[in-house]
């Protein structure tokens, strides 16, 4: 235990519970917040990033702040989603309200930053707050294929499956000049909306508005956003021979390597891979190994993962979350200064 009592704040994964290494020490609430010091300490390292996913480390930050970012990304960063459906005709077997619910869950390509929230639900939609789409599909027999050739519904009927790609954008006012056809519409082309048979018909007008995850989960910009603490594994007693290989198996791949020196084989922690340990604590299955290793997590090192739904790139979502927080803070300050 001595070796892990360095100045780093940690949580230690013991056999039955998670403990802090400085249980009596000052907590985050006792800390005097100093912006200069915070700036000095704060470090952001982007590990990987593409259009939808991003992993980055947030170092030197307290858990409540990290959690605030996570929560804001989940429920307060706005996006556009279909919120109103005018059913002009629906003769398919799926009920109107279920169909509307399914349409609402389709992720849309549309930069929410370019739109305003609808202030009054009863007001007529404007080009500034609403995107209009339409879905007109009619199922019929496919005359080109005889029943003998195939019995698959996809072959013998036309439009037996309704997909998200069939949703067509209807620009309002100056929207046609402001947006490209390719920038507006469903992100995924192959989301199955309904199944139909000859004679069934859908004629819908769809209205997408801007709102956030607090209102409905369909407005959340992320599939999920979460963090975990950086794992730090220390071998406190030398583990040699067969036990070294056993120890290796108790951790994720690459976390422990077995080094050969002369005739000795001993286990060492592969520092570069330790961050990918899953914290599975399977060493506690072996009585001889469980005291040889200490598994801990660094309390101010957050490994963030953002999985975007596609409307906004993940880094933009994080930035939006920051601006939501900023807006909240200034709103509070304004209220206090009155």
């Amino acid at each position: 235990m001595e070796t892990v009592n360095d100045e780093k704040p940690r949580v230690i994964l013991t056999e039955h519970k998670v403990v802090e290494n400085f249980p009596q020490g000052p907590t985050v609430y006792d800390d005097h917040f100093d912006a200069k010091y915070f700036k000095k300490k704060l470090q952001i390292v982007v590990i990987r990033r593409n259009n939808t996913d991003m992993e980055f480390d947030l170092i030197g930050i307290q858990h409540f702040l990290a959690n605030t970012f996570r929560r804001l990304m989940l429920s307060e960063v706005p996006t556009m989603a279909i919120d109103k459906v005018h059913v002009l005709n629906n003769t398919s077997i799926i009920q109107d309200e279920v169909l509307a619910h399914r349409l609402g869950l389709i992720p849309l390509k549309a930069d929410p930053r370019l739109f305003q929230s609808v202030a009054d639900v009863n007001e007529a939609p404007t080009e500034k707050n609403t995107l209009e789409f339409e879905l007109k599909v009619k199922c019929s027999h496919n005359r080109e294929i005889s029943k003998k050739e195939s019995s698959r519904a996809e072959d013998i009927y036309k439009n037996s499956n309704v997909y998200s790609k069939q949703i067509k954008w209807v620009p309002i006012g100056s929207q046609r000049s402001r947006f490209n056809e390719s920038d507006v519409g469903p992100i995924h082309q192959d989301i199955l909306i309904a199944k139909m048979r000859p004679g069934h018909e859908l004629d819908l007008k769809l209205f997408a508005t801007k709102s956030n995850g607090k209102d409905h989960a369909k407005f959340s910009p992320v599939a999920t956003a979460f963090y975990r603490l950086l794992p730090d594994i220390k071998i406190v007693k030398p583990v040699e021979g067969e036990a070294a290989f056993r120890l290796q198996k108790c951790f994720s791949q690459g976390v422990i390597s077995v080094r050969k020196e002369n005739d000795r084989q001993y286990a060492v922690v592969n520092e570069s891979h330790a961050r990918y340990d899953t914290g599975c604590r399977n060493v506690f299955r072996y009585d001889d190994l469980k005291d040889s290793v200490v598994m801990s997590k660094i309390q101010d090192h957050f490994i963030f993962t953002i999985e975007s739904v596609g409307a906004l790139p993940p880094d933009a979502i994080f930035r939006e979350a920051l601006s939501v927080l900023k807006a909240k803070c200034s709103a509070l300050l304004t209220e206090l200064n009155v």
């Binding site: 994964l13 039955h16 519970k17 998670v18 858990h63 409540f64 979460f226 914290g279 604590r281």
Partner: peptide
Amino acid sequence: VFYSGITGEPLEAY
């Protein structure tokens, strides 16, 4: 290991 969604800290219990 689970993290509290409210405080953001790891929960004491597994």
